[in-house]
Design a protein around this nucleic acid. Structure first.
Length: 405
RNA sequence: GUGGGUAUAGCUCAGUUGGUUAGAGCGCCAGAUUGUGGCUCUGGAGGUCGUGGGUUCGAGACCCAUUACCCACCCCA
C-alpha cells in the first residue's frame, strides 16, 4: 500500500468541506474589505525566499523543499505566501503606480520540511492578504479587524497580541542594546538562548525557561525604545482597537519569525489546539518591496493557518438536499437516467442508484445520501409512466407523471 | 535535528501475573409476513494482533531491532 508522504494529508468528506468553508468565508470577507484574489506559482526561485524571508529563520535555512529543476534552476516549493505575492506585485510593475493602493488575498498550500506534530504539517494551507501602498496605521488596524471578523464569523475564540518591532531608525539601536544586555547575562542563559543571541536575539525574550525569564527582567523592551513615529503609530493602533471593542494584549516579546517584518506585528492565538497556538500572524513589511528590487512601497499582510483552525470552526448545520432516484425493476433504470439529466440541467442535485432494489432499501439509501427527495419507479409506475416521490423531510409522498416531476 | 508515547476488525478501543476457537461498541450487509427511511431486535461478513528476529512446551502480551503515526522541544501559521 502506498501512503501519503509524511506530514501530508488528504482532506476528505467533512475535512474537505471545512477547508472549503473556511476559504470561502475568508475570501468573502476579504472582498468586502476591498481585497482582490491573486494566485501565484507554488514553485519559485530559491533566491526569492532567501532575500525576503531571510536566512535568520529556520524556514529558509533548513526547512525548504529545495531542488534543481531540469533546466538547472535552483527552485523550491513556497514555504509562505508573502514573497510570491510581492514578487508578482513588482513583476506587474504595480510599484511604479506611486500613491495607488493594491490589496490582494490568496490561499493555498505551503511547504516546510519540519517534524510534524499537532498543528504542524509539511504541506499546510494558509489564507493570507497583502496590502500595498498604504502606510497609515489605520490599515494595520483594519487588517486586525478583518481577522477578527473572519474568526468571529467562523465561530472561533481567540486572543489578539500586538507589538511594534520598530523601523529602520529605532530597531537597530534597540537590537544592539539588547544584544549587549544578553551578552552580560549570557552565562546564566540556557543553551538555546545563547545560540539565539546571535541568530535572533529578540526570541530570547520569549524563552519558556523559567531561569532565563528571571534573568531577563531587566532586559530592555522594544516598546520602551521606539522612535517618535513608531511610538505614535503604536499608540494610535491601540486607541483604534480599544475604540472598536477588539480586546488585545501588548506582548513586547512577540516577534515575527520572518526577517521582512517591521513596525506593527500581531498574532491571533487559541488556547484550544495544543502547543502550536498561533492561528494567524502578520505585520508590516515596509522595506520588503525594495529588498526585492521594487520601488519603495509600504506593505502589510497576515496569514491564517488553515489546519490550525480546522477543528475550531463551527460549521453551519447542513440540511437535506436534492434528489435520490431509484428503480425496483431493471427495465426502469433507463428512465432514471433521462430523468436525472433533466433534473441536473435544472440545477437540482441528483444521484442515481443503478441497482434495482426494494423500496425499503432505496429509502435507506436516500436517507444515507442526505437527499431531500426519494423518487422510485416500481412496477405500477413503470406501466403508467409515473414516478413515486417522497419528501424525506416532511414525510409526504405523491405519484406524478414522469414529465411533471 | 532532540526527547517521550502508541501500533489488535473500516473506525474507537478492550484483551487481567504469557495458556488453547482474539472480543465489544460504532459502521457495513441481510432479515423482522414480500412497496415505506431515521429507532429497536436478530443474524452475517470482516483481523497473517505494524514488520523482522529472540526467550518459552506455549507470545497479541516479555526482550531486541525496524518502520509508521502521535505529542513535545526547536521553529512557525
Amino acid at each position: 500500500m502506498i501512503n501519503a508522504l509524511r506530514g501530508m494529508k488528504d482532506l476528505i468528506f467533512e475535512e474537505a468541506e471545512r477547508y472549503r468553508y473556511i476559504t470561502e468565508t475568508a475570501a468573502r470577507i476579504a472582498q468586502n474589505y476591498g481585497f482582490s484574489y491573486i494566485e501565484t506559482p507554488i514553485l519559485e526561485e530559491t533566491r526569492l525566499f532567501k532575500r525576503s524571508v531571510g536566512e535568520s529563520s529556520d524556514i529558509v535555512g533548513k526547512e525548504m523543499y529545495q531542488f534543481t529543476d531540469k533546466g538547472g534552476n535552483d527552485v523550491c516549493l513556497r514555504p509562505e505566501g508573502t514573497a510570491g505575492v510581492v514578487r508578482a506585485f513588482i513583476q506587474a510593475k504595480l510599484d511604479r503606480q506611486q500613491g495607488q493602493k493594491y490589496r490582494f488575498f490568496y490561499f493555498g498550500p505551503m511547504f516546510r520540511y519540519e517534524r510534524p506534530q499537532k498543528g504542524r504539517l509539511r504541506q499546510f494551507h494558509q489564507f493570507g492578504v497583502e496590502s500595498f501602498g498604504e502606510a497609515g496605521v489605520e490599515e494595520d488596524f483594519t487588517l486586525i479587524q478583518m481577522l477578527a471578523d473572519i474568526f468571529d464569523t467562523l465561530g472561533i475564540r481567540y486572543t489578539v497580541k500586538i507589538n511594534s518591532l520598530g523601523c529602520k531608525e529605532c530597531m537597530p539601536p534597540y537590537r544592539e542594546s539588547l544584544v549587549n544586555h544578553l551578552q552580560d547575562i549570557e552565562d546564566g542563559l540556557c543553551e538555546d538562548c545563547r545560540r539565539r543571541i546571535a541568530t535572533n536575539p529578540i526570541r530570547v525574550l520569549d524563552c519558556k525557561n523559567e531561569s532565563c525569564q528571571n534573568l531577563l527582567k531587566e532586559a530592555p523592551r522594544i516598546t520602551d525604545n521606539l522612535c517618535e513615529k513608531c511610538d505614535r503609530d503604536f499608540a494610535r493602533l491601540k486607541h483604534l482597537l480599544s475604540e472598536s471593542g477588539i480586546p488585545y494584549e501588548v506582548d513586547a516579546n512577540l516577534v515575527r519569525g520572518l526577517d521582512y517584518y517591521s513596525g506593527t506585528a500581531f498574532e491571533f492565538v487559541s488556547d484550544e489546539i495544543g502547543a502550536q497556538s498561533a492561528i494567524a500572524g502578520g505585520g508590516r513589511y515596509d522595506r520588503l518591496v525594495e529588498f526585492l528590487d521594487g520601488r519603495p512601497t509600504p506593505g502589510i499582510g497576515f496569514a491564517i493557518g488553515i489546519e490550525r483552525i480546522m477543528e475550531l470552526v463551527q460549521m453551519p448545520e447542513k440540511s437535506r438536499e436534492g434528489w435520490y432516484l431509484g428503480a425496483m425493476l431493471p427495465e426502469a433504470v433507463e428512465k432514471l437516467l433521462t430523468l436525472a439529466h433533466q433534473q441536473r440541467k435544472a440545477g437540482e442535485k441528483t444521484v442515481v442508484e443503478y441497482t434495482p432494489k426494494s423500496l425499503k432499501a432505496h429509502l435507506k439509501g436516500a436517507d444515507k445520501a442526505g437527499a431531500r427527495y426519494c423518487a422510485v419507479i416500481g412496477e405500477d409506475e413503470l406501466s403508467n409512466g409515473t414516478i413515486w416521490v417522497k419528501d424525506l423531510e416532511e414525510k409526504s409522498e405523491k405519484v406524478v407523471p414522469l414529465t411533471e416531476i
